[in-house]
Amino acid sequence: MSGWFANVDWSEIGQACLDTLAMLGGSLLLTLALGLPLGVLLFLTSPGQVWQNRVVSGGLALAVNLLRSVPFIILLIVMIPLTVLLAGTSLGVAGAIPPLVVGAAPFFARLVETALREVDRNTIEAVQAMGATTRDLVFRALLPEALPGILAGATVTAIALVSFTAMAGAVGAGGLGDLAIRFGYQRFQTDVMLVTVALLLVLVQLLQMAGDRLVRHFTRR
């Protein structure tokens, strides 16, 4: 075993795994917490919906698209001052979380909006026709009906965040991506590269399986 993976420092790998999981967990939680209301707002202000408002919906859409079109590596760099302000540092796990959230929340918000759009028009009208407030409509009808789609969106977002964390590694965030770049790429230690990629693959697989299982659990047909 040690002959095959001569360069691999398993305790360093272990630490990198923990860093990656911490970055992923922290940024995923914040991304879901910010992206969900943003997605609901995108949906409610779109034409034909209860809060339809061209200015708000157009402005939000523009902001979301702007953030989504900036390559993540650029976002990491231009956000450094803001990151320092929010997290106190631009390095390590804490420093990675603000750019990860800013990069992923707009993406998730769009997926939430798309999932809400799939809710049957007649269902929305039926709930309005009962005398529902917008709050009732959102919490008692839209979110429960769109839950499988939102969970599928959260899965896609979590997986996107895994590759974002690897990129964040390149600018000093630590984690598996950092190892892959520092040792595997810059020092040609192919064994380190293989181990980190394999671990990232396992992580992605687990996320996908957990996501699929949740989606299936909440789908009633």
Binding site: D120, N122, T123, I124, E125, A126, V127, A129, M130, G131, A132, T133, D136, R140, A141, P144, E145, L147, F218, R220, R221
Partner: peptide, 26 residues
């Protein structure tokens, strides 16, 4: 009250919860 061509039921809720919804909202 209103009923629709495509029924407009909540697919994520049981029949009981669908019928209870207007009462809960009220």
């Amino acid at each position: 009250g209103m009923i629709f061509q495509n029924f407009g039921l909540l697919g994520s809720r049981t029949i009981f919860d669908n019928v209870a919804l207007p009462l809960r909202i009220a």
